[in-house]
Amino acid sequence: MNCGVIVFPGSNCDLDAYHLVRDVLKEEVTYIDYEERSLQGFDVIILPGGFTYGDYLRSGAIAARTPVMEAVNRFACSGGLVLGICNGFQVLTEAGLLPGALCRNDSLQFRCRQVYVRIENNSLPFTNKASTDQVLMMPVAHGDGSYYAPPEVLQDLEANGQVIFRYVDQRGEAVKAANPNGSCENIAGVSNRAGNVVGLMPHPERAGEAVLGSTDGLVIFESLRGYCKGREVLKSG
């Protein structure tokens, strides 16, 4: 699996994502500058967390209009796998690659804690190694994480299986108390219609080693790795 981690001005989880792919998964990974215009040769592009451009205007708004995002758009349109984490999720919605938007947390406060999310669709390249309704513990750290989409869009997302992660309690119930930011329908992460672009607010890359308190995030990267390996076998076969 050949991963690219995009580095925008103000990204700060780029090192976490890079470390996880290189040192934990032992896979190929390269930093990609925000002015890069080609993403040839990559299997997976990760948009990391952070505060791109200081969250000026809106979280992710400026980063979504950088040159590399035109390349990400072409990469996604040709079926490439794109994972946006936290600020990366915000960038993908601002770029129009994912539906909806991330608003200020309903508490109006920054939320930095462990949360539980339930995998709502385990048929994607990002989740196919997870079991049905598997619950993952991962950290969130954001001020603008309240997922919003108009009611008709929410209906479509649910009907098409595009709600991929939902905030739940430890037992896997999507209760209000488990929702750290006031997201519609406890939505923590969504995909595009084709299922090759996924964004989520929690940080799977910070839940990949026991020393960090959870290894639950690994299932997402293991799924991606399995999917990419399968694709290589198909190509060579």
Binding site: L57, A61, T93, E94, G100, A101, Y148, A149
Partner: peptide, 8 residues
């Protein structure tokens, strides 16, 4: 295209 996000 930039200054506002029509979704919100």
């Amino acid at each position: 295209r930039l200054l506002s996000n029509p979704v919100i």
